[in-house]
């Protein structure tokens, strides 16, 4: 195996385009585990941490652009980002231990294509946009449009994500992410939900986006769950309808981490609990 530090994204793309079995290395908390377990054996590792801008969190058009090599810990320490998108930040901060937080990146979490990736439902709910660099140049794509299936994204050959943009947000908005795990830490999500709300002046939900993780081949948006909340001050009935819409959207697998029945039930519970947190963060009174 070769290890190469890419100087800029053009070099990184060129290295991905050599025809070798190349993998990108940012935080490395997934690719090094896969190599250790013998699941992956790349012939080339392209380290993208030295590329200018890749390690930055920068304000842009009222929102924030987060570089592909920014660690979870760095996101958690960024007061402005945390104030604007607390749900996204807490989702990223749930990935692994403190030690893993020191390395793991939000973009890496997205690129793994895991249905259970913590950051992805929160990014979906937030309407995050990925910036993609490839042989034919730079393009932007909604994170929601990138998801393909377990372990797969719609990134093309030799394409990489250089950053993710979290847009500006209106007043009275808030987001939250919750996941269920059997312990309090150190597990992979069994079911999870990201909720992003905008309220009107009366505390009723004006806009709502709900996304679920670990209950389908990819993280999924659940428009019906969001619709169930719109117009409501988050009363019990709206929450029940939201939970029911979430359950209806579930298409999980039975495995060592949870049953179909369990994941389906929990997805609704996580969504309604996350909705309540998001509502409070948006200034609503429960």
């Amino acid at each position: 195996m070769r290890y190469v530090v890419a100087k800029d994204s053009r070099e990184a793309v060129a290295l991905l385009n050599t025809g070798e079995n190349a993998r990108l290395l940012a935080g490395g908390t997934d690719v090094l585990v896969q190599m250790k377990l013998g699941n992956k054996a790349p012939s080339l590792l392209v380290d993208i941490k030295a590329i200018i801008g890749f390690s930055d969190i920068s304000a842009e058009n009222g929102g924030f652009r987060i570089g592909a090599a920014v660690s979870g810990a760095e996101m958690g320490e960024h007061a402005g980002l945390k104030a604007m998108w607390p749900g996204v930040v807490e989702a990223v901060e749930l990935i692994g231990s403190t030690q893993v937080q020191g390395r793991a990146t939000m973009v890496g979490n997205l690129c793994n294509g895991s249905p259970a990736a913590d950051a992805v439902p929160a990014m979906l709910a937030a309407g995050a946009v990925a910036r993609i660099e490839g042989p034919s140049g730079t393009r932007d794509m909604q994170v929601a449009d990138l998801l393909e299936g377990p372990g797969k994204t719609k990134l093309g050959k030799a394409e990489l994500i250089s950053s993710v943009y979290l847009p500006a947000r209106p007043e009275r908005s808030g987001d939250a992410y919750l996941r269920f795990i059997p312990r309090t830490e150190m597990d992979i999500a069994v079911a999870s939900a990201g909720v992003n709300l905008v309220l009107d002046e009366n505390g009723c939900v004006l806009e709502a986006t709900v996304a679920l993780g670990a209950v389908a081949p990819t993280a999924v948006m659940v428009p019906n769950a969001g619709a169930a909340l719109v117009g409501s001050p988050l009363e019990e009935q709206a929450l029940e309808a939201c939970a029911a819409a979430c359950e209806a959207a579930c298409n999980p697998i039975d495995d060592k981490r949870g049953t179909v029945e369990f994941r389906t039930k929990i997805a609704g519970v996580m969504a309604t609990r996350a909705a309540k947190i998001a509502y409070t963060r948006a200034g609503g009174q429960l």
Binding site: S97, T98, Q99, V100, R103
Partner: peptide, 27 residues
């Protein structure tokens, strides 16, 4: 464990707590 699950290999890298089993020597 070698997979970042146990923390026995913890070190700090530029002041940041990391699992040294999830960092390459080359990095």
């Amino acid at each position: 464990c070698g997979t970042g699950d146990c923390g026995a290999c913890s070190v700090t890298l530029n002041g940041r707590l990391v699992a040294s089993c999830l960092v390459l020597g080359a990095e």
